Simulated scan of single mutants.
Amino acid sequence: MRDFRKYAVWEQSHRLVLELYQITARFPNEEKFGLVSQIRRAIVSVPTNICEGCGKASEKDFARFLGISFGSCQEIEYLMLLAKDLEYLNERSYDPIQIEIVSIKKQLYHLIKKLNAEV
């Protein structure tokens, strides 16, 4: 069994969850059950699936859960673009988030690639 806390990608994604919770708390109230809920579910899925994958016995299963995390990153990438275009998020806040998401996606991609090579 793997310790999810030892993965830099888990740590970075956890920090991004905390950040996006703070940011979305400032979104309009009418988005509470819409965009805010969707963003929060998507971003929480990233470190959660890394954790769940760490509990799997095989490299193949771990890689599958990392793939789910990657998909959630794709979703959050769009949702944050939408939030920016709806003017719930300014460019100064949006750019660092995008950089973080791309960094997380790259780490997940390389870890998945490594795990699949070991199978």
Rank of each mutant, 00 (worst) to 15 (best):
E52D: 10
A57T: 13
Q38R: 04
P47H: 14
F62L: 10
K32G: 01
E19Q: 12
G53E: 07
N90P: 03
F27D: 04
E31Y: 07
E118W: 06
R40Y: 10
P28T: 13
L108E: 03
S13I: 01
I104Y: 00
V9C: 02
V9F: 00
A117S: 15
S58R: 10
S103H: 09
C51L: 15
S13Y: 00
V102C: 04
Y88N: 02
S45K: 02
A63M: 07
A25C: 07
E11D: 12
C73F: 13
I104N: 01
F4E: 12
S72G: 07
F70T: 02
E77P: 06
V44R: 10
K32M: 08
L111Y: 13
L18C: 03
S69Y: 09
S69A: 15
I97Q: 03
Y94M: 01
S103R: 10
H110P: 02
K113V: 07
S72L: 03
Q22T: 08
I43N: 08
Q22G: 14
L108Y: 00
L18Y: 04
K114N: 12
G71N: 07
S103T: 14
R92Y: 12
L86Q: 14
Q98C: 13
Q38V: 15
L20Y: 05
S103L: 14
W10H: 08
A63L: 04
C51E: 14
E59M: 14
L16Y: 00
T48N: 13
E30M: 05
S45G: 15
R15Y: 06
I50S: 04
D85C: 06
V102I: 10
Q107S: 13
V44A: 14
L20P: 03
I68D: 10
A57P: 02
A63V: 04
A117H: 09
L35A: 06
L108D: 02
F4Y: 13
K6T: 13
K106F: 11
